[in-house]
Simulated scan of single mutants.
Amino acid sequence: MEDIQSPWTTVSSEVIYDNPWIRLRHEEVIAPTGKPGIYGVAHFKNKAIGIIPIDNEGYTWLVGQYRYPLNEYSWEIPMGGGPIEADILESAQRELREETGLIARRWENIGRIHTSNSVTDEEGFIFVAEDLQQEETEFDDTEILQIRRLPLKEAVDMVMDNRITDSLSVYGLLKVARLRGL
């Protein structure tokens, strides 16, 4: 990566909202053009962790749930948040078990993504989980989830026809499809 210094100058920064998951900052800035401006930054207190479990038959699992901010139902890869200071693999293992009941013996980190780098510093990681064993799910007390097992190619098709729109899911499924020649 290139080592490029920021052309932005932060004049002031004020936390305007803070809860256990996010912190919102209002910042007065000098833009790269030299003009004064403002910036709003959403800081996430967790890393986004997404997992693509793949079994011996080439099937994967999707999780369906109603997403409050979107006011719509969403099909996604199993995912969740991992504390910033926590090991990302341990967070991925926990999320996969909670949402699908799956335990994987083989893990591969296939990528890092910024979910919306114009307004947030959220960082996401995608794992492929293989050599799977089915156990019981451990849903969070706020979740009502549907779990669906389907061919990996069908999940990729859902990305391509916009039935899957979540950024971690889109990135992860397209990357794994490319890596596996689908």
Rank of each mutant, 00 (worst) to 15 (best):
L152H: 04
N19T: 09
E2R: 05
I126F: 10
K35T: 13
E135S: 13
M1Y: 06
P20K: 02
G111A: 14
M158P: 06
Y39L: 12
V29C: 02
A129Q: 00
D157K: 10
G101D: 11
Y66T: 05
A104I: 02
H43M: 05
E2Q: 06
R178V: 06
I110V: 15
G82N: 01
I113H: 08
E123R: 07
Q146G: 03
F125M: 08
E122N: 14
Q5V: 10
L89P: 03
G172Y: 04
V15I: 14
I88A: 03
I16D: 03
F127E: 00
L174F: 03
T165V: 15
W75Y: 13
F139G: 05
A31H: 13
L24G: 02
P151L: 11
A48T: 06
N109Q: 15
I4P: 00
V119K: 04
V170C: 13
E14M: 03
N46G: 01
T9S: 06
S13Y: 05
I77N: 04
S116K: 15
S12M: 01
L132K: 00
Q133N: 06
Y39C: 06
S116R: 15
F139M: 04
R23G: 01
Q146E: 11
L102M: 07
P53C: 06
V29T: 09
T9R: 12
E95A: 14
G181M: 09
G101K: 08
R23M: 12
V159A: 06
Q5G: 01
R105H: 12
L24E: 01
G82Q: 03
Q65H: 14
E2H: 02
V63I: 15
P151D: 04
Y59D: 15
E72T: 13
M1I: 09
E123H: 06
L152N: 07
E72W: 10
R23H: 01
P83Q: 10
D141K: 11
N56R: 13
T142Q: 08
Q5M: 07
R97T: 02
R105I: 00
M1W: 04
S118R: 04
W8V: 14
V170G: 06
W8A: 00
E154V: 07
W21P: 00
W75M: 14
P53S: 00
D121R: 09
N19F: 03
N46R: 11
N19D: 15
Y39H: 10
R25I: 05
N109A: 10
E154Q: 13
K153S: 09
Q146N: 08
K47D: 12
T33S: 15
E57R: 08
L24N: 04
T9W: 02
S6P: 03
R106T: 12
D166S: 12
R94P: 00
L70G: 09
E138G: 07
V119C: 05
G181Q: 15
L96S: 04
M1D: 05
S118L: 12
R94N: 11
Q134T: 02
Y171I: 02
D141V: 05
Q146C: 04
L62S: 09
E108K: 13
P83F: 11
V119G: 12
Y59W: 14
D141L: 08
